[in-house]
């Protein structure tokens, strides 16, 4: 298995190179440049040209690409044109925020969805199942940003239970206070994200549970007299997790994607908004860095999913 993993890693290298060239070319193909947005009556075009020049933006693409690769191997992803600070520092700060929120949301989502899915499957066709199904479909139907706006309005502004902006309160000092304040700030967006993001897991799990319920090994276990609680815990649950494990790898690497909606509504500085803004501002250095990171994460995600699957299901072994 280690061999396989190593091989997969080696294949990733050419993939990443191709990806980076594509990203680089596509970014440059967009109309405009990092300074298009700064035209105003007092910004002299000559100075803008000067800035373009010293930033190497007039060089041919392969030269720009080469410079970028050379810098990359020195751990330097360049400076953001929009934020005027090193890309690594910029992304670092945002990634930490996003990771916090996404991890919390993911844990909550699984904590809500797994029991619901199993319960619905176990009581197929009965009232609890109907309630859970209706709940997941309703939450699935409402656009997430509507949920966020309503959520922040009711719980943030009207009831005042939760903070409404940012990732930390401005007067937080000391380790404990900082941690607490950060947690308090992700509580509402995390809860909303989890409560309204259960549909996939619940539905997959439910149908798997229903399938397993009627499979031979369950019937065998039942006829042997194994208590139904144990059947669910040891036989059905584990087998039903297979499809969920299949995308668990992606959801781990997806932790860094960020959500534009959550970040906008809660003024939460994260990766999602950074990505979107960098595209509209033509902040090339940030765009290429982010796409590359996402690309690599996706490749790792595929690998992780395979590994997780092989752990959950001993029948599957990567060869």
């Amino acid at each position: 298995m280690w061999k396989t993993i190593l091989r997969r890693f080696l294949i990733m290298i050419p993939e990443v190179i191709v990806l980076s060239i594509l990203v680089f070319l596509l970014a440059k193909a967009m109309p405009g440049d990092p300074f298009t947005g700064s035209i105003n009556p007092k910004a002299d075009p000559a100075q803008i040209h000067h800035l373009m020049k010293i930033n190497g933006l007039y060089d041919p693409w392969y030269q720009q690409y080469w410079n970028w690769v050379v810098h990359l191997f020195h751990g330097n992803l360049g400076n953001s044109y929009q934020y005027q600070e090193p890309v690594t520092r910029l992304i670092g700060g945002r990634a930490a925020n996003t990771l916090w929120l996404a991890l919390f949301t993911m844990i909550l989502t699984y904590a809500f969805a797994l029991p619901m899915g199993v319960y619905a499957g176990r009581h197929e066709g009965k009232l609890p199942d109907t309630i859970i199904r209706v709940y997941t479909y309703v939450t699935y139907c409402i656009p997430f940003f509507v949920i966020l706006v309503i959520g922040i309005w009711i719980f943030g502004y009207v009831l005042g239970w939760f903070p409404t902006t940012g990732s930390i309160s401005s007067d937080a000092t000391g380790w404990l206070h900082t941690f607490g304040s950060r947690f308090y700030h992700i509580l509402l967006p995390g809860l909303l994200g989890a409560l309204f993001g259960t549909v996939n897991i619940v539905q997959y799990l439910r149908s798997e549970v229903i399938d397993s319920k009627h499979s031979d090994y369950v019937r065998t276990a039942r006829s042997k007299g194994v208590p139904s609680k144990d059947i669910y815990r040891h036989h059905i649950f584990r087998n039903s997790l297979l499809p969920i494990a299949a995308f668990a790898g992606y959801s781990i690497t997806g932790l860094l994607n960020g959500s534009i909606f959550t970040e906008t509504v809660f003024s939460y500085p994260g990766m999602g908004l950074l990505f979107v803004n960098s595209i509209s501002y033509r902040d090339y250095t940030v765009i290429t860095a982010l796409v590359l990171i996402y690309g690599i994460l996706n490749l790792i995600g595929t690998l992780l999913s395979d590994i997780i699957l092989s752990i959950v299901d001993p029948r599957i072994r990567i060869q």
Binding site: V149, Y157, T164, T165, G166, T264, F266, S267
Partner: peptide, 19 residues
């Protein structure tokens, strides 16, 4: 003095609730 970025989506709500 504290200055907070508030999403323009809900600045009206923020003002209405005396924030």
């Amino acid at each position: 003095i504290s200055i907070n970025v508030v999403s323009s989506n809900n600045i009206d709500k923020a003002i209405q609730s005396n924030k």
